[in-house]
Design a protein around this nucleic acid. Structure first.
Lengths: 177, 177
DNA sequence: ACTGTTATATATCGATACTATATATATCGT
DNA sequence: ACGATATATATAGTATCGATATATAACAGT
């Protein structure tokens, strides 16, 4: 799924600037299942504009650079629907931490423990920012994607907390310290 | 983590050709937490050879093209240890299917159901190929990474099976058919 | 026996995406 | 006052991938 399609998808949530679209992928609703960078978002918005799939208006700001607000057009929505009609590619997970755990025998034990604790904390943080706010007012399909994300993070956290001894050895377990 | 480091990591499991390294990322031990393509593996092996981090010997085959077998060198192992000493980047998950679920209102219901069923099946398949063979003979850190992968897939499968109505509506639930 | 598909091998090019950098001003923490 | 971060835009250089190319074996279907 290319970045132009992702931008169209992001704009279905409401008008946004390039910077705001980036935030949707970094910390917002898309952050748990896709990414996009400034290096691809700005060029994509330019091409979408040329193709008439988005429209743009500039908004001046006091003491700050002007903001370019983009909106999806009707032909943009048609193009999005067409893309969503295709078969999705397989999921891709890239986890440097898991590569490190897999190659743990090539790491210093203290270093491995630091990486493990940081990774566990980052998963707690991700879970925490998905547990609020309350999502009972969300449409069902949004509850679905959010719930699936939580299930992922919770399962990983539970497994890591219960099995840290497999990676770090017995003396690092739980509250033996 | 760049592809050269991934190739060094792959070669710690034993000598391999470019094609075999690709298979490790496609169907093998790394497939659940990282990817690499021919387009990056072959150039990476070339550069690793130039830098003395791997060595290579050609193996002729009957009726098939020659095979280039690569081995990690001592300086390759040193370089790998150094890379593993750095802080890993955050995990990146790219899931076109989840983007589609999130944007479900822009999809035809029949199409959404097909995507959902295909995605669920692909997760069952991934889980199945992680449940065999028995891993009790694996070193603990390998049991850890495999177990974490299983926990991920199992949690996703359970959530999807229990909550398909949120995405597809009541009439599509379980065995109401 | 023949044909199409898949597997086993190598490799590279063009397209896409990302990181780093650039510019500009506000806000925040020390 | 100063450094870090946030809010904004944008692009060049770099990395990665998908498509393509070449070659032969093995397999499945007819």
């Amino acid at each position: 799924m290319d970045v132009k399609t992702l931008c169209l998808g992001a704009l279905t949530l409401g008008d946004a600037s390039g910077y705001e679209i980036k935030k949707m992928f970094e910390d917002g609703p898309f952050s748990h299942f896709h990414q996009a960078s400034f290096g691809s978002i700005y060029p994509a918005l330019g091409k979408l504009g040329e193709a008439g799939l988005v429209s743009m208006r500039e908004q001046s700001q006091d003491g700050r650079p002007d903001k370019k607000m983009y909106s999806i057009t009707e032909s943009g929505e048609v193009a999005l629907r067409r893309k969503l009609g295709k078969t999705p590619a397989d999921d891709r997970i890239r986890s440097e931490a898991l590569v490190m755990f897999f190659l743990a025998e090539y790491m210093q034990p203290e270093r491995l423990e630091k990486v493990f604790d940081g990774y566990l904390k980052s998963y707690h943080d991700k879970l925490n920012c998905m547990c609020e706010p309350d999502d009972s007012t969300l449409p069902p399909h949004r509850q679905f994607t959010r719930g699936l994300g939580r299930a992922f993070y919770q399962a990983a956290i539970d497994f890591m907390e219960e099995n840290r001894h497999l990676l770090l050895g017995e003396e690092h377990s739980g509250d033996a310290k």
